[in-house]
Design a protein around this nucleic acid. Structure first.
Length: 431
DNA sequence: TCTGGGGTCCTAGGACCC
DNA sequence: TCTGGGGTCCTAGGACCC
């Protein structure tokens, strides 16, 4: 059996933990640049606010109902997430941190010793008590069914174990659950697949489980579709994977606060992203061999597409050196930049990740990575920025002209303090 | 006027290798 | 005229997830 623990309205719930005055009020959390709605409290959902909606389109609705608006505060959410996951890692033998707000638990064999519904209810209560975050728990024989059970639990369905918990332990429960979920709400069915399914009259998860394997292979992405069907029928095709360090890629991308046209400004933004990417690499003990730099014009501002331009560079050896990565990124940027375009976003993606520290490797033509002393420089850089704050020491390319704010900085009008991760912003309790 | 960021997996064709 | 079988790597794009 698998358990899926999923935090309710996670970002909005995080904001509420330290701002209890938001309890009972509709709360909205915005993406970077205060661009889109990315989280809503239950009250905000009930008022018809939709996920992913651009803020400028719903501002009127938000103000009319006096909703509380928060710019996203990823330091806070990341820290709250770690607290939840740390607790979960003590209640199940294997835990897969699937995203910032949910985790799969491997419950193999546990149903012999536990009343799973009662157990899940206790886990739910303990997470709330220890972290302040409300969660729901779905339990079922496959991951896909656990997701589905969780969704129903969020809507109020439950068996024993109390509200917020749904266990699908037998065939009857499985069938009933499938019949109650719309096909577009099944994990793995996106809007394109949903459209195809609607065309052939498939509306519910139960009907999806009944379509032919051949049809699924043809129209739902080959083996991906076939696996999906199996999982819905109760045959597990995917185990819980312990968060492996073998991540495949790593990206740092941002939209700008305003469109940029000048190469120098874009170069500054790209250098900033490379700096962050380098820090991430070193923190995780990885090196990258492939670097992609991309810039985008607006995909909404009418013709002409294309709006995305990228260059991929293969480095002679895998590296975690910010300066080496930065030089490659600048070369790539010069290749794709064109005058007269209004760019709204830039980013750096690193692929071909390897464990760092295997030592420098010579290539056929004698290319080595950066000189050995460079590793010391990077360590010093990380130490200074860790101690005195991000951006204390930067590469010159990532800095704006003296006396000017960076042209690419993003908007964050309503950010809450880093209550749990910054000494200067700790929560104060007055007695 | 204003539309996020970071991932995964899969497919398919071409170049190239033995 | 008849032209194998099994790989890897790279690029690009599609679909999906939170």
């Amino acid at each position: 059996m698998f358990g899926l623990v999923d935090c309710n309205n996670f970002y909005a719930s995080c904001e509420r933990v330290f701002r209890p005055e938001l309890e009972g009020r509709p709360v909205v959390v915005l993406s970077n640049n205060d661009g889109c709605v990315i989280a809503r409290s239950q009250e905000a959902k009930a008022l018809g606010l939709r996920m992913g909606e651009p803020y400028f389109k719903v501002r009127e609705l938000v103000e009319r109902h006096r909703m509380a608006v928060c710019s996203s505060n990823y330091e806070l959410y990341g820290d709250m997430s770690r607290r939840v996951m740390w607790y979960l890692s003590h209640v199940a033998p294997t835990v897969e941190v699937y995203s910032i707000d949910e985790a799969f638990l491997d419950l193999a064999g546990m149903d012999r010793w536990h009343d799973l519904a009662g157990w899940a209810g206790e886990v739910r209560g303990a997470v709330r008590q220890r972290t302040g975050i409300p969660v729901c728990v779905g339990v079922a024989p496959t991951k896909t069914l656990a997701k589905l059970a969780n969704r129903l639990a969020k809507q109020g369905a439950h068996t024993s174990g109390g509200p917020g918990v749904l266990v699908l332990s037998d065939e009857t429960e499985r069938r009933e659950a499938l019949a109650r979920v719309a096909v577009e709400d099944v994990w793995g069915v996106g809007y394109r697949s949903a459209a195809k399914l609607h065309e052939v009259g498939v509306r519910t998860a139960a009907q999806l489980a009944g379509v032919g394997d051949a049809w699924a292979r043809k129209h739902l992405g080959g083996v991906v579709g076939a696996r999906l069907l199996h999982e819905l029928r109760g045959f597990s095709c995917a185990g819980v994977v312990v968060e492996d360090e073998a991540r495949k890629s790593l990206a740092c991308t941002r939209s700008f606060g305003q469109p940029l046209t000048e190469l120098a400004d874009l170069a500054g933004a790209v250098a900033t992203h490379v700096t962050r990417a380098g820090e991430k690499l070193r923190r995780q003990g990885l090196s990258a061999r492939l670097l992609t730099v991309f810039v985008e014009t607006s995909k909404y501002a009418g013709p002409p597409p294309p709006y995305s331009f990228s260059a991929q560079l293969t480095l002679p050896v895998a590296t975690d050196d910010t300066l080496t990565l930065g030089q490659a990124a600048q070369r790539g940027l010069e290749r794709i930049w064109r005058p007269g375009r209004r760019y709204v976003k830039a980013g750096v993606v690193l692929d071909g990740l390897e464990r760092a520290g295997a030592g420098p490797q010579a290539t056929l033509f004698g290319d080595l990575g950066p000189p050995p002393e460079r590793a010391g420089l990077m360590r010093a850089l990380d130490a200074l920025n860790g101690r005195y704050g991000t951006g204390t020491v930067q590469v010159a390319a990532a800095m704006p002209p003296p006396g000017q704010p960076p042209a690419w900085v993003m908007r964050r009008g309503a950010k809450s303090p880093a209550f749990t991760t910054s000494w200067g912003e700790l929560w104060e309790v007055k007695c």
